[in-house]
Nucleic acid binder design. Structure first.
Length: 585
RNA sequence: GGUCCCGUAGCUCAACUGGAUAGAGCACCUGCCUUCUAAGCAGGGGGUUACAGGUUCGAUUCCUGUCGGGAUCACCA
């Protein structure tokens, strides 16, 4: 079932076409001036330019052909050539009735199961997750949900940092601290213990020390590099220790992501493509794509028509080590082979834009990725504090992710107590509600802006739960649930449209385009925005209209149906940004 | 210095990719809980869209320049 706006665009498009003009000029959008019309088409003005005609004259012709269409109660020309459209209530009612029982709430699909790989999250093994991982995780997860709903087969890959120098740092640090451990005995040939010798808490202390020491002293760094190389050569003891750290870290990551309600389809890491690197580089050397430069092996990615510098992608450093670009290129090999996707999307900090451009160019140049596949770096800005500088805690450290979530939950619990909401709920339910409120607040605050630039992370604002926030949306959804519950609502009945509820029905008809816009441009914020507007419009209606005391039974049933539709769309949109609604709050 | 991104209300952000009167939230004022959850609703003040040109019926959006902020510029990730 095409959306209402699709249907209208089709009708207008046919009229333009019958006049020898491109049918794309018939594109209909929601009116900017609700006081004048419900929908509008600006195509006459654009068409006039290409056809060298008067815009109003073009509009006149189009309007003349729409006059007797029974869908419209009003078709007018305004200003330089805007075509203003208003539907009859019958037409609106017909459309709304057609989506009332639709689980997709009228949203069309834009894909037919094509594979899309999304790369987000990117936590590091042995390193505690902190607020820096937040944006990638929740933006990536939301885009995954949106594309999946839109008809793609999505493959969300967590792409862990599990194979770089930091692993060598930690291993060498452990060896310095515990030289007697069996993992460091080169002559040992037996089995290693099944229990990990380190916990995630240990790692949270060890990594910063190892990293700091390595950066401070070249000879300490040399140990880290040596350990990295030995690990990558799979020295038995190191590899066993690494597996322990991997397992311990994944456990901790899973707890964090479960709390955030962020999901992945596959849990691969840099280590998974390690064995692909040597054959890949050999192959590229043979084909002439990889060449020696200054002692390193590189792929040149600068094109002739570039007016800017494009450093080559380094595959092997002068010392023979590999870089993250090497791993990323090998990951392209892996993903093409495993999934043959139409798109590969990277939700990673905008600062890595140049790096990804290098990798993508190298991917196309070497034919690892065909030109038909979209490679896209969806960058996002740095998370700043209210002072405009990169976010730090009061004592200057990084805020751990679990601490952030705990802070949000505390605030929400406090709010529940103040409002005496849930005094009679079980402790478990109150905690569950607080958790959902906290997650909604954190995610909505982040996802509501589209800025590639920076993002101001303001905990106080986020947990005030007032105004345009995630908890506001939960609150409105829960109120509707409570209303339907009290009314004992069952589906059925005619939809009756009147002045006080017409804006809401019109808004319900916009969902398909909103989600399509978000899916095509990878912009979850348009969903946040529309969800907020819908919630606000309903809240206004709810405040002015007492539904349960309505005496006209048919009217009451119609309003309950409207409420149920608003709720369904709200929950759908919240789901697309990874937010769950509690039963009550 | 080269390249890229950004500059919209006091603050944080939108503006359907060139459309009509630039919209929200916070903060500030005024009302509204003995009828469905006040984490709410109704209303008010607040703008030369950094600045200067250009393109056209029409510019926050596209082009040029200036100013200001940020990022990045091959052996770290």
């Amino acid at each position: 079932m095409p959306s209402l706006i699709t249907q209208l665009s089709h009708i207008l498009g046919q009229v333009f076409e019958s006049e020898g003009l491109d049918k794309s000029f018939g594109r209909v959008i929601v009116s900017d001036r609700p006081d004048l019309a419900q929908f509008q088409c600006n195509g006459a003005m654009a068409a006039a330019r290409s056809a060298k005609k008067n815009p109003r004259a073009v509009a006149e012709v189009v309007v003349a052909k729409l006059k007797d269409n029974a869908l419209f109660s009003k078709v007018e020309i305004a200003g330089p050539g805007f075509i203003n459209l208003t539907l009859t209530d019958d037409a609106l009612k017909n459309y709304v009735s057609s989506i009332v029982a639709d689980p997709r709430c009228g949203a069309e699909k834009i894909a037919q199961g094509e594979n899309v790989v999304l790369d987000y999250g990117g936590p590091n093994v042995a390193k505690a997750m902190h607020v820096g991982h937040l944006r990638s995780s929740i933006i990536g997860d939301s885009i995954r949900r949106i594309l999946k709903f839109s008809g793609y087969n999505t493959i969300g890959d967590i792409h862990m940092g599990d194979w770089g120098t930091m692993m060598g740092m930690v291993i060498s640090e452990l060896e310095l601290q515990h030289p007697d451990w069996v993992y460091f005995d080169k002559d040992y040939t037996g089995d290693y213990p099944t229990e990990s010798p380190v916990t995630i808490e240990d790692l949270a202390i060890i990594y910063p020390k190892a990293s700091g020491d390595s950066k401070a002293a070249p000879e300490r760094m040399a140990l880290s590099h040596a350990a990295t190389v030995e690990l990558q050569n799979k020295r038995r003891g190191y590899y066993a220790l690494w597996q322990h750290m991997l397992r311990v870290s994944i456990e901790s990551m899973k707890a964090n992501f479960a709390a955030l309600n962020v999901q992945f389809d596959i849990w691969k890491g840099e280590s998974d493509v390690h064995d692909l690197i040597a054959p890949m580089v050999d192959d590229l050397k043979q084909k002439g794509y990889a060449v020696e430069s200054d002692g390193a092996i590189v792929v040149h990615v600068k094109k002739n028509d570039d007016n800017k510098e494009f450093p080559p992608l380094i595959l092997y450093k002068r010392d023979g080590g590999v870089m993250y670009g090497t791993t990323d290129l090998a990951t392209l090999v892996d993903r093409m082979r495993e999934y043959n996707p139409v798109k590969m999307l990277y939700i990673v900090d905008q600062r890595q834009n140049l790096h990804f451009n290098q990798v993508f160019r190298a991917g196309y140049i070497t034919k690892i990725v065909p030109e038909s596949v979209e490679l896209n770096h969806l960058g996002y800005g740095t998370m700043n504090g209210t002072d405009g500088k990169p976010f730090k805690t009061r004592d200057g450290g990084v805020l751990r992710l679990e601490d952030l979530i705990a802070m949000g939950r505390e605030k929400a619990l406090q709010r529940l107590e103040e409002a005496h909401v849930g005094d009679d709920f079980s402790k478990e339910e109150r905690e569950d509600i607080a958790m959902k409120v906290a997650i909604a607040a954190i995610k909505f605050a982040d996802l509501q802006n589209n800025r590639i630039a920076d993002y101001v992370f303001d905990l106080d604002r986020m947990t005030s739960f007032e105004g345009k926030t995630g908890p506001y949306l939960l609150y409105q959804a829960v109120r509707i649930k409570s209303l339907l519950d009290k009314a004992g609502y069952k589906t059925g009945g005619e939809i009756i449209i009147s002045d006080i509820d017409r804006p809401l029905y019109l808004m319900l008809s916009e969902l398909s385009e909103v989600i399509e816009n978000a899916a095509r441009n990878y912009t979850p914020h348009v969903i946040c925005d529309h969800a907020y507007k819908l919630a606000q419009a309903f809240s206004s209606f709810y405040g002015n209209t007492h539904i349960l005391s309505e005496e006209n039974a048919a009217q009451k049933q119609s309003w309950l149906t409207l409420s149920a539709m608003v709720l369904a769309q709200l929950e759908l949109m919240l789901n697309l940004i990874g937010v769950n609604v509690p039963k009550r709050m």
